[in-house]
Design a protein around this nucleic acid. Structure first.
Lengths: 218, 218
DNA sequence: ACCGAAACTGAAGGATCATTCATATATTGG
DNA sequence: CCAATATATGAATGATCCTTCAGTTTCGGT
């Protein structure tokens, strides 16, 4: 799925006056609103500008092209999520497996649900443009942090902490995304909240005793 | 993410001569190839036709518009996956939890990896067009089948089989997708193969003994 | 070999949309 | 209050791309 990578993704200039800061903010939220209301295919520069209450040209003062705008939005959101997870990891370091599993799942859910609309919008952006690189690197950093966290558990010894962390990230990231993209039905979200911590704990416990009785094909 | 739903998704006519069947097949594979080579944004009717070695008009003899083509491809792939999972469910009915967990994970991996390129392409289509309905319904049916399977396990009693099946589907679907979209690195795929069965088993075991010692916030 | 139906062609129409730029307005420091 | 600078405007441009259809070629039964 090698999508053409946009060049010059950086914003054109930074707002210096307060009104322009407001404008940029308005453009950001308008983008997310349009994305959620009409989907990525209908995300046109004019529509976003209209929704933001500004002119098309204004957007081009801050972003060299549409993709740069989307890129900026994604990066911001990724940063917020990563920071939230780092906090959680720091908080949970050294605790036992049960606490780690549930704490991490909780933190992930909170981070994703905090701004549910924005998160859903991001998935829409990821769909159409190649933002796989920032996502990939963010994921990589998170997996690394998770690995350290797993190692720090006093009551656990993982054979392959790297793989376990990798899988844990895939499980959390994927399942939440699946549910959110499927319409974010409140009922489903509630089930998710209930079951994800269980899933994380179940996996980690099994992975932890894996070196005693490895799971293999019968 | 309410994307505008395309109308008249059904193919225009069915091939009666053998050459036209070949043409339709060529268009399908060309679509997937273009999708993987250039991404959903570059998926134009002309490009697909060119790759398929036919004229643009030819495609419009079978599909009323581009989206109908994509819809057809998605439906076919969904059908294949669903059938594979139904087979696995039938095969595993009545076995114990361990076998079920590993069998289902294996079946899911096989179904997704069988045509890795096609699967990845589907994700690209899902990105840009609203095919959430068929996917949603396919998922719903799969969850139902999984629920029956879970109930059939003689050595298990789930408090809420529906939620467990739901979560199991989200875990499997999401994690595989996450890895595949992240570039389908062979290394990562191998880890996935190794860890997914564990994850499924771990979750199911924990969910099963959930009614004895429910997992809650400390 | 013949003919009606099926399949194929591809240039042209028409619509959408990202991006530019010449012009207009607002803000700030002096 | 006055420049100088920052910010905003939006019609026009040019490119892309979906879709059509009138005409051509191929197929299959007789």
């Amino acid at each position: 799925m090698s999508r053409p990578q946009p060049a010059g993704l950086k914003p054109r200039k930074k707002p210096v006056q307060s009104r322009s800061a407001a404008t940029v903010e308005a453009i950001h939220t308008a983008t997310i609103q349009v994305l959620l209301a009409s989907g990525p295919a209908q995300l046109t520069t004019t529509r976003v500008a209209q929704r933001a209450g500004v002119s098309v040209g204004t957007m081009y003062q801050y972003y060299p092209h549409k993709e740069a705008l989307l890129f900026a939005i994604v990066e911001r959101k990724l940063g917020m999520i990563e920071e939230a997870m780092r906090l959680a990891v720091a908080e949970l370091a050294g605790r036992n497996l049960t606490e780690i599993a549930q704490g991490i799942a909780q933190a992930w859910l909170d981070a994703k649900m905090a701004d549910l609309t924005a998160s859903r919008a991001i998935y829409g952006i990821a769909a159409e443009f190649d933002i796989s690189e920032p996502i990939l690197q963010c994921t990589r950093r998170m997996v690394e942090a998770l690995e350290q966290l797993l190692i720090s558990a006093p009551d656990a010894h993982f054979d392959d902490p790297s793989s376990t962390a990798f899988m844990l990230a895939a499980l959390m990231g994927g399942s939440v995304r699946a549910v959110m993209e499927a319409g974010a039905d409140p009922d489903d979200l509630a089930r998710m909240r209930r079951e994800l911590p269980r899933a994380c704990l179940g996996y980690l416990e099994l992975a932890n005793r894996g070196h005693l009785a490895p799971v293999g094909p019968s």
